[in-house]
Amino acid sequence: MSEKPLPAFEEPPVIETVLGVQFAQVQLLSILHFGLYWEQIRETYSQQEIKPALIPVVEEFESQPAPEVNVKFSVVSEPELRCWFIDSTSTRLIQLQKDRFIRNWRKVKPEDAYPHYDILKPEFRAEWERFCGFLEKNRLGAPDVNQCEVTYVNHIEIGKGWESLGEAHKVIKLVSDMATADLLRQPELVRMNTSYALPNNKGRLHVALQPAISQHLSKEVLQLTLTARGRPTSPNLRDIMEWFDLGHDWIVRGFADLTTPQMHTVWRRTP
């Protein structure tokens, strides 16, 4: 990681964070266990929703042979699903499926302040340890973690440093100022996807930029999503936390690199 101090913002535009791990399917973990697990956390996470399961995602650096297309039908006794457990403030969420454990924080009200990684990481750690304890107690085995993920979603509001997509260069350094162009001054849409390899192929940082409407602001925004994903050195808790630190470090420094000094003033960057 860089020796330079991590950039910080007093009013960052982050509206959601995701800390998650993916592991080899815990085969014995069934829908019934999801209910048993909910009993353990229900005091804090009182609401639940059922969602379709996420498919596994793996960051690879070696070239892979194209998979053979071969569709077959089978009969299963239990559909793959994902359970959402939501806290009473609707700002914190645990997502659980046979091969994923994810914890989200989101901004609900304009006055909700980003709690910062120093709070969110220990919160994830406590919930992950509780989940691993649950697996152990029920003799379901220890999860073999194969990917870690950190995601930060930012909503960069229109009217705060930029007024139209033609001024996207005032927000993102990757975009050029086209104000003096003959024809292409005002784009209808600006979308961008870039990715960067983490050091020693420990994973990737994916960056996605696109215009969106913020539901809680009811306002046009540029949605800037940064996702760091990769394999921890081992499935041990210490290595998972270390990977999160790496992912978070790249997201914060990457965010500062990608965005302009003018916007840093809007978000009150320190130092």
């Binding site: 996605a208 696109q210 969106a212």
Partner: peptide, 16 residues
């Protein structure tokens, strides 16, 4: 794509 393949909770309305 970035965005954790659906691991996100808050979905902005993408203008596409």
């Amino acid at each position: 794509e970035a965005g954790g393949q659906g691991a996100q909770w808050t979905k902005g309305i993408a203008i596409s």
